[in-house]
Design a binder for these strands. Structure first.
Length: 474
RNA sequence: CGGGAAAUAGCACAACUUGGUAGUGCACUUGGUUUGGGACCAAGGGGUUGCAGGUUCAAAUCCUGUUUUCCCGACCA
């Protein structure tokens, strides 16, 4: 029953992950470490993510722009914390044949500098504000260890960069984008997330603060899945973004930035997929329905075509598989590709006046009468699958969310079944480092709406300031 | 970046120890028979053995370097 090309998820999670990536033909490795070829199946998922998010951005007043790929060194270095944070992983470019290069350039690791430089020349007055721009692009960070989607050297993302008249408005924007990410993860990707604030140690270099969404993978490892940063005036001071305010005074502008990446595809795999391959939520699956005629009986082919047309007209992306493969092969292929619903149609069905419908998430098969309203049935089945994936992931996240009073308890949990651990924290970075000694457990985020449970830091036992979620990260 | 493993046809492997110019299964192509969980028969096509040097009459095989992948750490998204 199990897919032969895929290592069991419970046996070796890391191997299972790369097996699924390969078996579902999402990417192919290239000759450059950490740079991958997105194959049609993989790129289609990204396109669907883009389409949905892009609409959400535009509905909240954002516009798309495009910035250059290259950043001159002096521009990058204007914001000290940013360059310090990114220095080890910046990819510098040498232009062939060019001698006495006055200045090096790098491939963008992120575009705060480019946006800020641009904003400094176009922002004059409060009447110009706010500017709410986003760009879809690639960035490059020279990582040492790479894994498809989770950590690659070149990756695709969107980065939103906004400029505001007041700190209040900029902070509202930071919150709004975090909520949009949460909405997208939960209602489209069917992945439940925790939201909170990063500690000083974990925040984005150059930000006043960073808000984050954190998801929990099947194996209990957490994944930082999206971040929204409030910059205050840090970048506007470094890049001289000044405007005349309503009192006719020059003031530095307030900025935000926010982004999500192709890493989300990795999250989709590690949250929903199984030993038979990819499992995709209907709202994001490139192919939503696979129709598989069994045998080449004329009535079967005609009926399959008829059903296909009905579903296409109802707005579904279908794949009518007329290839000469055996039915078993087609079933397995639809499964490994994560197609949410599969319709099987053979002469036996025609004789009995039924249609066989299989769902990918539970792998259950059902028959419905040929007279039944198939669109109505599929609509409700798709909803059910979408909900089931979310509820299953949510249940797992809840089961793997623990509380700990001290380091011993954290260690015990992380050594038996890793997950999210809620634990009090005094706010001292040294205590954070102490927790990290346990299998690399880091602070995921500070829960802003919850108070410390016991009142004492899990490390030093001094008075706790925050309730923090701790976890092992990808 | 440190420690370990690997790289031979699209994939999984064999041949390497003991140097003599590469083979099997699946996949692919063509024809036919099939079709309810990865079909069968027949005939075909495809590899300067990751790349670059070295040793040798001769290198997939021995030596050196390098690149990529995987695992464990450290670092980081």
């Amino acid at each position: 029953m199990k897919n032969k090309a895929i290592t069991s998820r419970d046996l070796d999670f890391a191997k299972w992950y790369t097996d699924v990536v390969k078996a579902a033909k999402l990417v192919e490795y290239s000759n450059v470490k950490g740079c991958m070829v997105f194959e049609p199946n993989g790129y289609a998922i990204w396109e669907n993510i883009q389409t949905t998010l892009d609409k959400m951005f535009k509905q909240t007043g954002h516009k798309n722009v495009y910035m250059p790929l290259l950043i001159p060194e002096n521009l990058l270095k204007k914001e000290a914390e940013l360059i310090e944070g990114f220095a080890p992983e910046v990819a510098w470019v040498t232009i062939g044949g060019q001698k006495n290069l006055e200045e090096r350039m790098c491939i963008r690791p992120t575009s705060e500098t480019l946006f800020s430089d641009y904003y400094s020349s176009v922002v004059k007055s409060y009447r110009d504000l706010p500017l709410k721009y986003n760009q879809w692009c690639n960035v490059m960070r020279w990582e040492k260890e790479t894994r498809p989607f989770l950590r690659s050297r070149e990756f695709l993302w969107q980065e939103g960069h906004t400029v505001h008249e007041t700190s209040k408005e900029a902070e509202e924007e930071t919150r709004l984008m975090l909520e949009i990410y949460k909405d997208f993860f939960e209602n489209y990707l069917a992945i439940p997330v925790l939201t909170g604030k990063k500690t000083e140690k974990e925040k984005f270099a150059g930000a006043e603060y960073t808000l984050t969404i954190e998801a929990l993978m099947y194996n209990g490892v957490s994944l930082q899945s999206g971040t929204s940063h409030y910059f205050g005036q840090k970048f506007s001071k470094a890049y001289d973004i000044k405007f005349l305010n309503r009192n006719n005074e020059l003031e530095y502008a307030y900025q935000t930035s926010w982004g999500v990446t192709t890493r989300m595809i990795g999250a989709l795999i590690m949250v929903h997929s199984d030993d038979n391959g990819l499992v995709l939520p209907p709202k994001i699956a490139p192919t939503q329905i696979s129709i598989i005629p069994i045998g080449n009986n004329e009535n079967v082919i005609n009926k399959a075509n008829e059903i296909n047309n009905i579903l296409i007209n109802a707005g579904y992306i279908t794949n009518l598989d007329m290839s000469d493969k055996s039915p078993g092969f087609k079933f397995a292929e639809a499964e490994v590709n994560g197609v949410p619903v599969r319709i099987e149609l053979g002469s036996r069905d025609i004789e009995n006046n039924v249609i066989t419908i299989a769902r990918r998430d539970t792998r259950e098969k059902n028959t419905i009468s040929i007279d039944e309203d198939i669109v109505k049935y599929i609509n409700s089945l798709m909803n059910e699958i979408q909900n089931n994936l979310f509820e299953t992931a949510k249940k797992r996240m809840n089961e793997k969310t623990f509380t700990a009073k001290n380091l011993d308890e954290i260690e015990k949990i992380m050594n038996t079944q890793p997950g999210f651990i809620k634990g009090d924290w005094c706010g001292d970075e040294n205590c954070e480092l102490k927790v990290k000694e346990i299998r690399g457990t880091k602070s995921r985020c500070i829960l802003e709406n919850e108070k410390p449970i016991y009142g004492k830091c899990v490390v030093c036992e001094k008075e706790a300031k925050h309730l923090v979620v701790w976890g092992i990260q990808y």
